[in-house]
Write a protein that binds this DNA or RNA. Structure first.
Lengths: 252, 252
DNA sequence: AAAATAGTGTCTATAAGACAATATTCT
DNA sequence: AGAATATTGTCTTATAGACACTATTTT
């Protein structure tokens, strides 16, 4: 048993608690006009047959970030537009059998039939996040909590970054980009003001010089843009709920 | 040796790579008008005698968050005003002897003689961050990288949260709060505009009804406030460098 | 009185919200 | 033509930047 007074300044290399370290990835995309996530069906106990976020053990010779990228590529062969570390989950009983610390990641992949053949492709699926978040037991382990944090991070980051463009592969229209915001935030945005904001942010959108074709109901062809190099949106675009964090209580 | 194809869906409980998990905490405060951090002198190899961020092993029965709070209280007996998870560092060779994954935390403690007697108090000190960040080897392990991320997180969070108030214990004046911003951001702020902003944010500052005493050079006594309940500052206050992330390159 | 710091008021510039009006495609 | 979508323009409102001015303390 490891010393109970273990301290980074006094430990010996043979005297420390052993943990397993995994990565779990919340891969978000838009499918059928809904914010959705890649899930896999578990093939082993615990939670055999239930849904879980894709992930796996970090290997001894790879960095945690590398493990996340490797697992992601094993699940989705589509190019990942964005991958960032989300948070680390380390409650003692989050895995029923042993002590596992999981480093969770958030990824965005482009729209439209995003997950194709991969090692575990047969068990991978894209499902809407809303019903998963409504039931704490809809995913294995504490993956609903991870997904909730991932969705909130995504919502927050659309406010002050240009990441929404990561939901598209080659090019997109301003209306399609606005649709991403409306779906992720679940609120309508004024088309004219949204356009003024995103086109007025230098480096957010790059004009391709081409137009798309109007949909079956007609309409003017829209200009196609691709993602520019600017990472931030300043000032941000605010969702309606942004202010709700500020509750003024009478005496605190 | 663990299976090289270990997967969260197929592992056995006895077949996984063993890691050590530690927490490291960047405890920021303001000392002598400088952004400063709590460091400890290491009492064991590796990096014996060098400076490091306080931290230690996560124990088998405690959560990672709990470990962070425990280590923090062992180092600083002053109440911690804010503690949040920063990021997890998992490069294979960040510790020269074995595979250690470290979950780093960011803490704010109040101003003024913050670190007192604690388990390791004799070895704890508060030092300015600037010289530490200037030399990649000024701290043990990858702690300079952790500190750099912590400082950047702190700078960013002052923009859109009310966290600066966490640098004060009981009450403070608007000018003292502004000084925090000026020190952390290393840039002057317009006093009148800053006051309008912070007092105009409902729930940021709560009027105590009392004034402080003017300093030795005189001046009007300033009203004392304490931290309110509002967590966010919307719209944010921007530092001058906020826009510099947007570089518009000709073709991307 | 002079210096120092706190606090108020005001003018201007920027950007968002609301929404009307025009443009270009489809059936 | 009429419907649908894209795009432009304009008026109003909110807020930050700049900075002058007033208020209250100390030496």
């Amino acid at each position: 048993m490891p010393s109970t007074t273990a301290d980074v300044t006094t430990y010996n290399s043979a005297d420390f608690p052993a943990f397993a370290v995994t990565v779990d990835i919340a891969v978000l995309t838009i499918d059928d006009d809904q914010l959705s996530v890649v899930v896999v069906e578990r093939g082993a106990e615990p939670f055999l047959g239930e849904l879980a976020l894709p992930g796996g053990f970090v290997r001894p010779e790879e960095s945690v970030d590398t493990a996340a990228r490797r697992e992601l590529e094993e699940e989705t062969s589509v190019g990942v537009a964005h991958l960032e570390q989300l948070s680390t989950y380390g409650e003692p009983n989050r895995d029923p059998r042993m002590r596992i610390v999981s480093v969770a990641y958030l990824a965005f992949i482009p729209y439209l039939r995003a997950v194709r053949a991969g090692t575990d492709a047969a068990r991978a699926a894209i499902v809407p996040v809303a019903p998963l978040l409504a039931d704490e037991r809809s995913l294995a382990f504490d993956h609903v909590a991870i997904l909730r944090d991932a969705v909130e991070r995504a919502r927050a980051k659309l406010e002050y970054t240009t990441l929404a463009a990561a939901f598209f592969s080659p090019a997109f229209t301003v209306a399609q980009l606005r649709r991403i915001y409306e779906i992720v935030w679940d609120q309508p945005l004024e088309p004219a003001n949204f356009r003024r904001k995103v086109l007025g942010t230098p480096g957010f959108l790059v004009d391709t010089g081409e137009d798309n074709k109007p949909g079956p109901e007609g309409g003017k062809p829209a200009r196609l843009y691709r993602a520019g190099s600017a990472p931030y949106l300043v000032p941000p675009i605010y969702r309606a709920s942004s202010l709700s964090g500020n509750r003024v209580t009478p005496s605190a």
